[in-house]
Design a protein around this nucleic acid. Structure first.
Length: 552
RNA sequence: GGUCUGUUGGUGAAGCGGUUAACACAUUGCCCUCUCAAGGCAACAUUCAUGGGUUCAAAUCCCAUACAGAUCACCA
């Protein structure tokens, strides 16, 4: 029985050949140097920070070379598929502006190299597998999982290399007749690649980030098709898909590094050119004293939900990820504050070859800068749409008091040194709640610093509100008036003078204004008092004095 | 155990045979100042995992050791 007959027996309905697909998916007509890249997550978990980095790098590579960025759904592991994962991938990509050029979602396909969902490409895989069988480079294997375990146990006990190779590849040289008999018998089988590699021979390949790497050839007969659902394994799908989709650069995690010899072997079997590889280092996390791989279960910041829930601006997250990917991104960013991130000349070579710790402090810093540069209106819109999704209470408040909120967010904003109070949208309300009258019902803690005597505070406030405050004063006049009152009531209006002789005064202007600040906001840490007073107006200030007298 | 990869301050890192070992974040201190936030100025690795070697000269090249990570599934 010939190999071809065996192939026909296994795949009677497959009539196409690899050449047919070769014609269906011709070389992309692109200029030299343009990159075709893909983001190919598997929906067995929700999108995490590692995926995000991979997607961002891919996008950057494609856009900066005028190439193509496509999304492929690697759903061959149907048992572990997580509901909602695919939707979340699309959502996240769009949220961060990493929209792919080619994809397939909700029955809509964009691009000529699809299907972009692996479970819809079974016929293609089968065609390629059939071809390999017919030329003797793949064969059905009937090893049961018990037998497989036995082999593995024996190998690890006797300290031999683990895997199905050489004499362990029991069905490699069993006759086609015997195989056909078993198939007709209804026995379950997997298709294994028949490797011609030699473990004692080395081959060198060039990884774009790690450089030249020497590895032994692959000699293991790996499964390329699973027995249960007849779907291909990752390795096989990678080779077929990335060839047919004409991928030029594969960005993937470092954990794939050790399968390169296998992939090399597989590409060689078809006579295809291997794409270039960019193996990205893992994102690590410091946990006490140990450093470990970031974990989707233990670390909330591993999953992309985290950043949206907290309300980090999308671009801040991207910049943060880019900084991990290429540390010189930061310098580029300070020189090009307004350019889109994908104009950055990303260099795989400059990627850290050891794992990087994802630094939330750094993200906070980047994010604060982003938010500080937004206009108050823009910030308000972002804040509002975040609140609409994640905090109903905040949403109600800020939609009712749109003008006040914008006024407040604008304090000391459009200047050379804007305030950097907020690292994300979730942190805004706890720092601004006091401008909303309704919030004053709750339990209050007045954060007085030096002057805490109720009668003294009352005196200062009444004196100021009834006799000094005028809403039409400029900031300069306003402050001069405060200083005058300050002197009158026994406080030093000049900080230097006060510091020289603190015992002569009840306190300084700073202490004096802190009193006002705290009565009006309960907090000793707020933006410019002048603006806050303007925002509140005399009536509300008097009301807050009343609340203070009642509650303090 | 086999096979790969890596190891520069609290963190991310630059460095590619001769540098006072960049820069950024964090931390600390001072200045400015109505508080805060900013901003300005300082401080923070006598040493690049350890031990050998090559060299006039090593964080940089070579070797060994240690440690860490990845991988060795009909999971991707």
């Amino acid at each position: 029985m010939t190999n071809k007959e065996l192939a026909d027996l296994i795949f009677p309905n497959i009539t196409k050949t690899p050449e047919d697909y070769e014609l269906m998916y011709p070389e992309r007509n692109l200029k030299e140097g343009t990159k075709v890249v893909r983001f190919a997550p598997s929906p067995t978990g929700f999108m995490h920070i590692g995926n995000m980095m991979s997607a961002t790098i891919n996008y950057c590579l494609a856009k900066s070379s005028g190439g193509v960025f496509f999304l492929r759904n690697e759903d061959t592991d149907q048992a572990r598929t997580v509901e909602g994962a695919v939707e979340f991938i699309h959502h996240t990509l769009n949220h961060y502006g990493l929209t792919p050029d080619e994809y397939e979602f909700n029955g809509k396909t964009v691009g000529n190299y699809g299907p972009y969902i692996q479970s819809e490409r079974i016929e293609i895989y089968h065609t390629f597998i059939k071809y390999l069988i017919s030329i003797g480079k793949a064969y059905p294997c009937f090893l049961t999982s018990d037998e497989l375990n036995e082999i593995r146990e024996y190998q690890s006990k006797s300290k031999k290399r683990i895997g199905i190779y050489g004499r362990y590849a029991k069905f490699r040289d069993v006759s086609n007749e015997e195989k056909a008999r078993r198939i007709k018998n209804g026995e379950k089988f997997t298709i294994r690649f028949r490797s011609e590699g030699d473990f004692n021979r080395k081959f060198v390949f060039e990884d774009l980030t790690k450089g030249k790497i020497e590895m032994p050839e692959n000699d293991i007969d790996v499964p390329i098709m699973k027995s249960e659902n007849l779907l291909p394994t990752y390795h096989f799908a990678h080779v077929v898909d990335d060839h047919l989709m004409r991928t030029t650069h594969v960005v993937r995690g470092e954990e794939w590094m050790s399968s390169v010899p296998l992939h090399y072997d597989l590409f060689k079997a078809f006579g295809y050119k291997m794409p270039k590889y960019i193996h990205t280092s893992l994102i690590l996390k410091k946990d006490g004293d140990t450093i470990r791989k970031i974990s989707k279960r233990k670390d909330p910041e591993a999953l992309m939900f985290f950043y949206e829930e907290k309300g980090y601006p999308a671009l801040a997250v991207i910049d943060s990820v880019m900084t991990i990917a290429n540390s010189n991104f930061e310098e580029w960013r300070t020189n090009n504050p307004d350019k889109p991130f994908y104009e950055f000349p990303f260099s795989p070579k400059k990627m850290s070859s050891s794992g990087a710790l994802f630094d939330l402090d750094k993200l906070d810093n980047i994010s604060k800068n982003y938010i500080s540069k937004m206009s108050a209106e823009e910030l308000y819109e972002q804040y509002l749409s975040w609140a609409k999704k994640y905090d109903e209470h905040v949403y109600e408040r800020i939609s009712k008091y749109k003008e006040e909120t914008i006024f407040f967010l604008n304090i000391e904003r459009e200047s050379k040194k804007p305030r950097k109070d907020y690292e994300n949208y979730i942190s805004i309300f706890p720092k601004t709640w006091y401008i909303y009258d309704e919030e004053w019902d709750k339990k209050l803690t007045y954060d007085f610093v030096k002057i805490t005597d109720k009668e003294e505070i009352k005196k200062i406030m009444e004196e100021y509100l009834n006799h000094v405050y005028n809403e039409f004063d400029t900031e300069e006049i306003w402050f001069n008036k405060i200083k005058e009152l300050c002197e009158k009531m026994g406080y030093a209006s000049n900080m230097k003078v006060y510091k020289e002789n603190p015992s002569q005064y009840k306190g300084s202007v700073a202490d004096f204004t802190t009193v006002m600040r705290v009565v009006l906001t309960t907090s000793s840490m707020t933006p410019n008092l002048y603006d806050i007073m303007k925002l509140l107006g005399k009536e509300k200030m008097l009301k807050r004095l009343e609340i203070f007298i009642e509650k303090y």
